[in-house]
Design a protein around this nucleic acid. Structure first.
Length: 158
DNA sequence: CGCGTTTGACCGGCGC
DNA sequence: GCGCCGGTCAAACGCG
């Protein structure tokens, strides 16, 4: 029953996740901010990035999926947030020389999707977009997650 | 052996 | 009506 989840962090605890901080958020609000993320209905037309012009404009029946964008500064694009993701596609995006990776939660009933994109101007910056909410507990300790959170800048699409 | 990853092709929607 | 773009699924392969 107690599954032993081993660390999936492929990088040493030394320089990888160090953020030079362009204005680090208050540590007292770091982890709490994320946990406080609620499925607030975002207005249709609301976009995390309005530089591409998302064509997903529907706003009809059913509640819309909450979308959150995170900008993380990391050398690796494989940021493990505690859940298991399965890559289901990769597509190149205009305005970005780097391709965007599409991930999906491998959990049954958990149709949470995640998109990871790297900025062309700053390859050290990785933008992760979460869509949907997890309906299951994390598969591994959150300790490291909090650690990363303290180094993440949370962007609220408000 | 299992599953996670990779690449290509296909489909839908929107724009013009 | 056609073209273009983005997004998703599927099959195959590799690795653990």
């Amino acid at each position: 029953m107690d599954n032993n989840y081993s660390m999936l962090f492929p990088c040493p605890p030394s320089s990888s996740y160090t953020i030079p901080t362009t204005g680090l958020m208050n540590n007292s609000q770091s982890s709490n901010a994320f946990l406080d993320l609620k499925p607030s209905n975002n207005n249709d037309g609301e976009d995390v990035k309005g530089d591409e012009g998302n064509v997903k404009k529907k706003g009809e029946k059913k509640a819309k999926k909450p979308k959150y964008a995170f900008q993380t500064r990391s050398q690796v694009d494989i940021l493990d947030d505690g859940y298991r993701w399965r890559k289901y596609g990769q597509k190149a995006v205009k305005n970005n020389k780097f391709p965007r990776s599409y991930y999906r939660c491998t959990h049954q009933g958990c149709n949470v999707k995640k998109q990871v994109q790297r900025l062309t101007k700053d390859e050290g910056v990785v933008v992760t977009t979460y869509e949907g909410v997890h309906t299951h507990p994390i598969e591994k300790t959150t300790d490291n997650f909090e650690h990363i959170l303290s180094q993440m800048q949370i962007y609220t699409p408000f």
